[in-house]
Design a protein around this nucleic acid. Structure first.
Ligand SMILES: [Mn+2]
Ligand SMILES: [Mn+2]
Ligand SMILES: [Mn+2]
Ligand SMILES: [Mn+2]
Lengths: 218, 218
DNA sequence: AAATTTTGTTAGAGTTATCTAACTTTATAT
DNA sequence: ATATAAAGTTAGATAACTCTAACAAAATTT
């Protein structure tokens, strides 16, 4: 049976492959905060599972089977997060750590039941898509808030990175998924934006924040 | 952090200590289906945690701290089982395997939330008591059905052993917790009992079954 | 009391997952 | 083109958890 350690490497590889197609040992090493020799050894395990194509000194390529296996772990992670929020009353900033553990549980029925009880949600509490049982994943196309212009009205549909600190910042400003922003102005100096949204007639968001908010035009 | 392997040894030790007070390496070895040298090594780890008193060639004694640590794992196991049955619609025969994994998750808030959502249940789906947050456990006193006599009316409050096969047998006879039996007769030859209960005017239960049903007089 | 069986320990080894140190290969800069 | 830096690999070690084989101690039987 695949250990949670191996599953975490696969997940990290999947994440990096979504950003770059080809992935370096070094990237995986810093993503997972383990040494390069450790990654080097683990890559051989991933290869034995048919999840990665590996040739000495060449960048790693995730295979289709690897992509699917990773998506099925993400499915468990995201169903868990959604279940914790929707059915158990946790805040969106509390669920990632728990899901990081629960995603390794080998009990398909548990996750299918969560799925059913929530009536087959399409996204997790942070707006990330939930892969289906075959590992298919529908990525809604969205743009960063920072790429939009003054006067546009956009709705928050997902987050780019979702650290606890960032989520708590959003909570403090009453920003949640589906919040509709109107862009009032963009500061040339630091690319910060002034936006308005329900109950907040004027709020300034730093560029860092605007890059992490994925929105679609309304 | 304590690994799930170590936690499983502690649980097994707790279980055996409840039956015998003193526990042998051999007993643990067969309970967990690992070799005796493996147990011998692990006992030294348990000792380092202060969970067991160990002297070469002497039987093991669970310490008070060990008892408490074990009870807290059992708490997570049983809350999980109850949650799966009460809130997620699983059958009582499906939940043990899942709980065996979930009990190792390090997220106190998850289990406290389950507890709260179920309004602090006292027993799991098999009638076993759920320890409180301090590891205190209230064992309801009950007798085996086999120890009762003709004419008595008793209610099923817990199960002695709860293998999937046994639970499925009970399902097939519509026997569940709180079922009230009236003992119609006891067969001297094989100690089987004929009982009646709701919708079952006459059902024969083997001695093996009667020994696994924990009941109290009504 | 001696023999036998059961129980427990030690020794030695394998697997997984990790590290550091040293080296090699590839990429980048001068 | 050469030097330097970055990336990748190999070697060797450690910790956790497991095994089998061999031996020692304790308990049981004869
Ligand atoms: Mn997450
Ligand atoms: Mn994880
Ligand atoms: Mn159980
Ligand atoms: Mn377990």
């Amino acid at each position: 049976m695949v250990s949670s350690t191996v599953e975490n490497y696969l997940k990290a590889l999947y994440k990096l492959a979504n950003e770059n197609a080809e992935v370096n040992i070094s990237e995986l090493s810093s993503e997972l905060e383990v040494s390069k020799p450790t990654v080097n050894a683990m890559v051989k395990t991933l290869q034995q599972h048919g999840w990665v194509i590996y040739t000495k000194y060449k960048p790693l390529k995730l295979t289709e089977e690897g992509r699917k296996a990773a998506a099925l772990i993400l499915r468990k992670h995201r169903l868990t997060e959604m279940f914790l929020v929707e059915k158990m009353g946790f805040g969106w900033e509390e669920v990632h750590e728990i899901a990081e553990q629960v995603e390794h549980i080998k009990a398909p029925a548990l996750f299918d039941r969560m799925d059913e009880l929530m009536d087959y949600p399409k996204v997790d509490p942070h707006g990330s898509p939930i892969p289906d049982k075959d590992g298919n994943i529908i990525q809604k196309d969205s743009k960063k808030l920072s790429e939009h212009e003054v006067g546009e009205k956009v709705m928050l549909i997902a987050l780019n990175h979702s650290s606890k600190e960032f989520l708590e910042f959003l909570d403090s400003r009453d920003i949640s998924l589906n919040t509709v922003f109107e862009i009032k102005s963009v500061e040339n100096f630091d690319d910060s934006m002034v936006v308005s949204y329900e109950k907040h007639p004027s709020e300034t968001l730093s560029q860092k924040v605007c890059e992490r908010l994925l929105v679609e035009k309304v």
